[in-house]
Design a protein around this nucleic acid. Structure first.
Lengths: 210, 210
DNA sequence: GCTTCCATCACCCAAAAGGGGTATTTTGAG
DNA sequence: CTCAAAATACCCCTTTTGGGTGATGGAAGC
């Protein structure tokens, strides 16, 4: 664990909460919060000129949202870690924030001790998340591939279609006649309800078949 | 926090570690470990017949790997939470496990107290992860879309290609001549280094262009 | 003012794809 | 053993695609 003092900035439009957060941070050894902002516009203007390690970012802000703000700021200041601090638990907010470059995601019911621990954690290479949030993130990976309607051979050929191979190339690679490849592809089209290679590839990817 | 006793099973081929883990779990109030397995084969045979909440799963096992094991077991026993407990930190192991349905991922340097806390956490709707692991998971969402090489019009047409539309349909939809559509598609192919619709769709999806 | 990119439209031609059939062999489940 | 599904192979025919080449007008950048 690093012993350096962690410099924290806050972007939060609620005056009371913003001041309370700064108060808690400044009242804890090892943490320091000098800069707070009421919206992303001012944060975007000021942050490049100050020294800060971690930013606590609200999502629901007037003007530029916290998610858009992170996307903009993270691109300009990739060394800063952004922790979302929000009441929102919907998938769009969560995954939007992560795609934008947030490194942590805490709900506002996080008690102060956990919040401080999360700030330390993000500074030490972690990615702090509220309990339910973590579960959502993990669950998003699980692929319950509905039993593919395709046979092994068909799936094999579908993969080669993705590489842009034509009948003949596929046939050579699989030691089949081009006629057979064509028959398989016709069956693939029928099963996926498509009529072209392009849409077969798209549907296969969307449905997690490949 | 639930006060019920959490029933834990272990799948781990190292005799010493397996016994040590069981010893720690059984020595802690609120935790109970009656069943341990040295490989996935025996776990797959026994787990459906026993009462258990959480399974600690190693990855490197003789025969069926922990990842394959989770995929098989999670499908049959979706109510059980699987926590990977492994020395492996590579992306393939991590994301393979998550896709298979693991709910937690701990490295073997996790101290016993953290391990027990993680078991509680997963039982309470969380998704416990080691610090670095969490960061990897979060980082996997971040999309730094390299500026698309395609123009607005080309991207527009690329999207229609995904729907399996032909020159004529695209032309009608965009109020263009089919000749123009063809020119755009030729330019798309050149920029994406492909020579067919199927591979253009694949590459566009892979590169996050659509 | 010049150049570059974008968007638009056009023609020719060979290759490939797609739709409709039919048929044999292998494999697997009951 | 039997039946169904899967995998294999072939034919005919029309439509679509991909590659090459060329041209024009407008907007943006230098």
């Amino acid at each position: 664990m690093s012993k350096e003092i962690i410099h924290v900035a806050i972007v939060e439009d609620d005056d009371e909460l913003r001041q309370m957060l700064a108060y808690v941070i400044n009242g804890t050894p090892g943490f320091y919060c000098k800069h707070t902002y009421i919206d992303c516009e001012s944060a975007i203007k000021e942050l490049p000129n100050i020294y800060v390690h971690v930013v606590l970012m609200d999502i629901e802000l007037p003007g530029i949202t916290g998610i858009e703000g992170v996307a903009i700021l993270k691109k300009a200041l990739p060394h800063i870690d952004f922790i979302m601090l929000t009441i929102r638990q919907d998938d769009a907010s969560l995954f939007g924030s992560l795609c934008a470059g947030a490194t942590g995601y805490l709900t506002k019911d996080t008690p102060p001790s956990n919040l401080l621990q999360s700030i330390s954690e993000v500074r030490n290479g972690g990615a702090p998340m509220s309990t339910r949030i973590a579960r959502k993130v993990i669950a998003s990976f699980k692929i319950d591939r509905k039993a593919s309607p395709l046979t092994t051979r068909e799936t094999e050929i579908l993969n080669l279609l993705c590489d842009g191979m034509n009948y003949r190339s596929i046939a050579e690679q699989l030691f089949l006649s081009a006629h057979t490849v064509k028959t398989h592809i016709k069956n693939i089209y029928r099963k996926l309800h498509v009529t072209s290679r392009a849409s077969a590839v798209k549907k296969a990817i969307d449905d997690g078949l490949i």
